[in-house]
Amino acid sequence: MTAARPKRLTRDDWLSAGAKRLAAAGAEALKAEPMARHMKTTKGSFYWHFKDVPDYHAQILSAWEKAALADLSSVLEGETGAVPRLRALAQSIAEPETGTATESAIRSWATTSAAARATLARVDEARLSALQGLLSETGIGNPEMARIIYAAGIGMERLGQTGTGDNRGSIGSLVDLVLALR
């Protein structure tokens, strides 16, 4: 009887494992040797899929950015009317369906990595722009309101990782308060 051949790892396997390791252990874990050990394979497999560690980092960030922007589009397309879309967007920031730990880890990574900082800035800008656009549609033109809602949502998301609470309800109440300013 021959042993079963191990499954060949794909680029997506490496990226998925990298996002999980980033969330669990931080950016320092995203090096070829520690990742290969974690995945029970050789560094050769890593270098088969990625030119080098910075390339791996860039591809992890790119995959996260694409997913974050797709989630943003999905939220905006899922509702009709500015108020329901505004509420849904704020709630998705405060209590995302997926990728919470990864986004939090990317926010931490962005304090030391220019590439992570640039990626995060693009996602933040897209979300802030969407919030501002929705607020404008409701008659609120003050751009600071979008920033306040966004900051509260990020804070609630991070708080939700360590405690219990109704982030969706809380951010919904903040949106209602802002809308009462009209």
Rank of each mutant, 00 (worst) to 15 (best):
A115P: 04
A94S: 08
G26P: 09
V53Q: 04
L89E: 07
A58Q: 15
G141E: 11
A126K: 10
A121Y: 00
A82G: 00
D13A: 05
A130W: 05
A36I: 01
T112W: 13
V53A: 03
L128G: 00
R11V: 07
A101M: 13
P143T: 11
N142Q: 02
H57M: 02
L135Y: 12
L86W: 14
S45P: 01
Q91W: 06
G26K: 03
D124Y: 01
H38P: 09
T98W: 03
A114T: 15
W48L: 15
L15V: 04
I60S: 01
A115D: 09
Q132E: 13
E79T: 02
S129I: 07
L134P: 02
G153H: 00
V75C: 02
E97V: 11
S73Y: 13
W109V: 06
A110P: 07
A94D: 06
E103Q: 14
L72P: 10
D71E: 01
A24G: 08
A115M: 05
K66W: 10
V123R: 00
G18M: 08
A152N: 03
I154K: 14
R87S: 12
A29P: 04
W48C: 15
I60P: 02
K66M: 11
A114E: 15
L22Q: 07
K20P: 11
L120G: 08
G81D: 00
A88Y: 15
E97A: 14
E65K: 07
R85F: 02
V83H: 10
Q132I: 08
H38I: 01
A94Q: 02
E125Y: 05
A118V: 09
L76V: 11
R21A: 14
A121E: 10
L72I: 14
S73L: 10
R117V: 02
G139P: 01
A101G: 10
L89M: 07
A17G: 02
G141L: 12
L69S: 12
E125K: 13
A32G: 04
R107G: 02
G78H: 13
R21W: 12
G141D: 09
A36K: 07
M145F: 03
G81Y: 05
L120D: 10
G155H: 03
Q132H: 13
E33N: 08
G155Y: 03
E95Q: 15
